[in-house]
Computed example of a mutant assay.
Amino acid sequence: MSTAPPNDPDDAAEDAEDIADDVSADDAARDRRFDVELGTTAAVVVLFLVLRLLAVSHWHWNTVAAVADTFDFSDSFAIAFGTIAGQPWVTGVFVAILLPLALIRLLWPLPEHKGQITVSNVLAVVALAVVAFAMTYTYRNPWTLVGAAAFGLVLVLIRVFVHAGVLRRFAVGAITQIALIAGIGILVLAAVDDHPWMSEERIATTTHGTIDGWVLDEAPGFVHVLTADRDVLILPTGDITDRRLLD
């Protein structure tokens, strides 16, 4: 009959130290990933706003400076929403790509993504579905939903029947890099949408006649207006006799 050797206190202490070191390393890696993701998100937001200012100004530097002088970060949400609504065909294409990717990642995740369902994944699917429905209802055009269904079917067929090669790598890469695709889509929208984020107005004045443009800012005593020719006019409020929204 054999007896097991007694546990060595030094070995137990070393094992505990190794476990603590592994936990610390994992925590440090997660912190680094979070810092990278946060920094990337901030960079995308800044680049998005810069591209929107450039596009709205028709890439004229002096106009960019004048528009930026009236910019307020509280307008960021209005700018983002206006960008999505300003170019419906471009938005529709990206929604048709992103919606099936987000659904597949949520409902049929890759092996490395199993157990990683987060609130952000669910909210992304809900937001994309709402945008797709709203665009379909507004424009009476089903092509966003049809395109999403077609692209999703292609991805499913590739995952089921193609086990290697370029198509497989394309499908897996698209599902894995959905955040990158979304970021590229947002920046493309920002660069191609030259419509300002506020409603266009017809402004009657005593000094400049009637002006069609967008009111950038209403400072005490003055109104900053971006005209259709992408000039920024500063009008005294006393010179404005009428303002009407244009359809």
Rank of each mutant, 00 (worst) to 15 (best):
A25G: 06
A25P: 09
D26I: 04
D27M: 04
A29V: 07
A29K: 03
D31A: 11
D31S: 06
D31G: 08
R32H: 13
R32C: 02
R33I: 09
F34I: 03
E37M: 07
E37P: 01
L38M: 06
T40Q: 06
T41D: 09
A42Y: 07
A42Q: 06
A43R: 02
V44I: 14
V44L: 05
V44W: 01
V45Y: 03
V45P: 03
V45E: 05
V46F: 13
L47Y: 03
F48T: 09
L51T: 00
R52D: 08
R52E: 05
L53Q: 08
L53G: 13
L54G: 10
V56A: 01
V56T: 11
V56R: 02
H58N: 14
N62W: 04
T63Q: 04
V64R: 00
V64P: 06
A65P: 08
A66H: 10
V67K: 01
A68P: 10
T70W: 01
D72G: 06
F73D: 09
D75P: 08
D75V: 02
S76F: 15
F77K: 02
F77E: 12
F77D: 10
A78W: 07
A78P: 11
A78K: 10
I79F: 08
I79V: 15
I79H: 04
I79S: 02
I79D: 01
A80F: 15
A80W: 15
F81M: 14
F81E: 11
A85I: 09
A85S: 14
G86N: 07
Q87S: 15
P88C: 04
P88T: 07
W89P: 07
W89A: 13
T91P: 08
V93L: 14
V93M: 13
F94E: 02
F94L: 11
V95Y: 08
V95G: 11
A96C: 06
L98C: 11
L98N: 09
L98V: 09
L99F: 07
P100L: 02
L101D: 07
L101M: 13
L103W: 11
R105P: 12
W108H: 15
L110Q: 14
L110E: 10
P111H: 01
